[in-house]
Design a protein around this nucleic acid. Structure first.
Lengths: 230, 230
DNA sequence: CGAGCTGTTGAGGCTTCTCAAAGAAAGTGG
DNA sequence: CCACTTTCTTTGAGAAGCCTCAACAGCTCG
């Protein structure tokens, strides 16, 4: 069930053009590139490496034995993953888009003070994101979940320190880079519900769809108020 | 709405009888005791201290503006909390039972290497627990959620390395130390649903209730199979 | 013993899910 | 390059699960 095994790891290349995103590239010993929907590791695999997203995006998910899947985190450039409490990974990691990752062995990471500090920083913000996501999964309606999800992709909006609409037209175009199934599994919904909510938002002219995974938000403020956060 | 402000901080005393639980007491500068349902801090408060549960239990929760609450973590002895990404707490912290906490300022924590290491360890297992909880909130039925919740309180059972039933009678008595509202807010359900599921489990003779928050599990293996994990 | 709170139970409604079918998009091979 | 297959998405109808509202029961404490 929604299992992609098209692991075709492109040969490593130097991540020299990292789009100016802040990463720990200097600390990492190796690079590796994955195609879209490539498997990085599975839950239960021996946890040999720590990874950092250099470019692209990665999702972490868990499966129940009957096939139900929950996507627990969506990661972007600068985010770390693969630091388990035990010696096996507690989640599976799969790319959403073509992705370049830095990696280093656990041992290397443990001996680097800079790395340890960086790991701690990432963990703290990871925990904070997971708290927010627990609220979404436990207490938000389908509409609120989808609205919250879309707001993730609007930079510097929807925060505590939202700058508000800049122009007369409060528009924004976002690229999801996720299938409906992946979105549904992240939001704790079914693909049908996600699709219906998006259609409903189109009907209400909150959004329009340029492509299936490219959405124009017609009214960012309006959408933000649908998240339940305000 | 379910807001408890009976903050009556009992005067600090030395945590000398820590029940043999492993804590970082040596590293912490101060102790503080709270009554059951005492507020330790609120979401949005300036994050001045890092806390460790020495004895008792603490819940971390977030509120939506309309009063909906999600309990995101339940902590016991040895667990740390109060390490926010920014300079304010991202959750509220409240005790479930009478609780003794160790605390130290952020600055103190940042200068201690032992502390940093300990914080990292706790964060990693926190993340893992939050992953598990996301699966519960996003993908499990009410019955599975309650079963999973009850299994939390059965030591060395329900894990990957479950030892299996030890005696002929596979029983276990657990004390929840939580109100139905707190349980519901942790599991993303309503109090009525929690109550109904527990009643249903009684009817099926999976559990019996010694007191309202003291439950005898008649068949641990049976309950474990209701969690959805197997 | 009565007041107040917490928990239980019931009836009905709403949201979301399930199942099914058709439409759109993307990949495949001639 | 086009027809075909495959996959993904949308939409509909009906069912199921959980929630809301309401009343009652049980415990706690003055």
């Amino acid at each position: 069930m929604h299992m992609h095994s098209n692991l075709r790891s492109i040969q490593p290349r130097n991540g020299s053009s990292d789009e100016g995103k802040e990463t720990m590239s200097g600390e990492f010993s190796r690079h590796k590139q994955f195609p879209a929907h490539g498997v990085i590791f599975f839950e239960g695999d021996p946890a040999s490496n720590i990874y950092e997203v250099a470019a692209g995006s990665v999702m972490l998910y868990k499966l129940l034995p009957d096939g139900r899947r929950q996507v627990v985190e969506i990661l972007g450039p600068g985010d770390l993953f693969g630091m388990p409490a035990g010696d096996i990974y507690d989640v599976s990691a799969e790319t959403l888009t073509e992705t370049l990752v830095h990696l280093m062995s656990r041992k290397e990471a443990e001996t680097s003070h800079v790395m340890q500090e960086h790991i701690k920083k990432c963990l703290v913000s990871q925990v904070q994101n997971l708290h927010e996501h627990a609220v979404l999964l436990g207490r938000k309606s389908a509409h609120e979940r989808v609205a919250s999800f879309l707001m993730r992709f609007v930079p510097s909006r929807g925060d505590f320190a939202c700058i508000g609409p800049q122009e007369d037209a409060d528009e924004s175009v976002v690229t999801l880079n996720m299938t409906r199934q992946e979105i549904a599994d992240f939001l704790g919904l079914t693909i049908e519900t996600v699709s219906r909510v998006l259609s409903d938002m189109k009907r209400r002219k909150v959004i329009t769809m340029e492509k299936q995974d490219r959405i124009r938000i017609m009214n960012v403020c309006g959408l933000c108020h649908l998240t339940g956060k305000y």
